Simulated assay, not measured.
Amino acid sequence: MFEPQFFTLTSLYFLALLSPGQDFFLIVKHALAHGYRKAWWSCLGIASGNAFYIALAYIGHEFLSTYPTLLRFVETGGAIFLGYLGCLLLFAPAPALDRKTRPNVTIAFKLFVQGVLSALLNPKNILFYFSLLFTIIKPETSLHVKIFYAVWMTAMLLAWDMSVAVLFAHAKQSRFFAYLHTLQKIIGAVLIAFSVWHLYRDFVAFTIG
């Protein structure tokens, strides 16, 4: 189960979690406004939305695995998209926190729904999962291993988001934002490097085959 693809998947996914996106800022806003315990409901909603997209990516991967040529094109497209995300992160301006919060968002269910919608309404999420799974997970990987990967990624996401909520539960913790821009660039460079490596591997396999 703990094959090289597992460690590659875990490493890239964790780097992606470190990158501040709209889910990240939603959690921070809720943590600052309502405390980390209520913000955890947002974390649970975000994890639920991402779990749904992971399931969709798996279904697509399973279907396309019966069409090797088409799967290769999709894998190449996925690698290109990861490189595109890397460029966005590498050249993005320094992230800023919008401290505005809705004063009526005080119920746990509303925070949960906001988390779900934040995950589902971000088109980059589904594209990211398709790109990540199609470029790393081999078609012959057994179903129980794929399920383990899905549960593992969802658990990583939930644990990280809950940690972010605790970390930023107090306004003074906002000093950590000073380091996000540098971290953003490092993650972008890693994604670009992985994309280039994968495209080179595909090119070599295509020329030899």
Rank of each mutant, 00 (worst) to 15 (best):
T101P: 07
F128A: 04
D202Y: 01
K146F: 06
Q5I: 08
T8R: 14
R99T: 15
V166Q: 09
M156L: 15
G60E: 02
N125C: 12
Q184I: 11
A55G: 13
A47T: 04
H144R: 08
L64H: 10
I54N: 03
A119T: 10
L132V: 10
R72Q: 05
L89E: 02
T76C: 14
H30D: 12
V151N: 06
G45W: 01
I136V: 13
G86P: 03
E3K: 14
S174C: 08
L17W: 13
W41I: 05
L121S: 00
T106P: 02
L32F: 13
A94T: 14
V190N: 12
Q22N: 13
F112P: 04
H181M: 06
M156S: 14
V164D: 03
G115V: 11
T8S: 15
G60I: 05
C43K: 08
L18D: 07
E140C: 01
L120E: 04
Y53E: 07
T101D: 04
D23V: 05
L44Y: 08
Y58V: 09
V113N: 07
A92C: 06
L70H: 13
P93C: 11
L157Y: 14
G21V: 11
S118W: 08
V28S: 08
F24D: 06
L120G: 02
V116N: 04
S174M: 10
F2T: 07
P68N: 03
F177T: 00
K138N: 12
G83M: 00
A39Y: 04
W197E: 10
G209M: 06
A108E: 12
W41Y: 14
H198A: 13
A94I: 04
Y84R: 00
P4G: 04
A51S: 15
F81H: 09
L18H: 11
V190Q: 11
V164S: 05
I147Y: 09
T135Y: 10
H144M: 06
I137D: 07
L17A: 15
I137W: 10
I59F: 10
A169W: 07
V105E: 12
F14E: 02
A119K: 13
I80L: 15
A55R: 05
A169P: 01
E3N: 14
T154W: 11
L127C: 01
S142H: 09
F206K: 02
W41G: 08
A94V: 07
G45L: 01
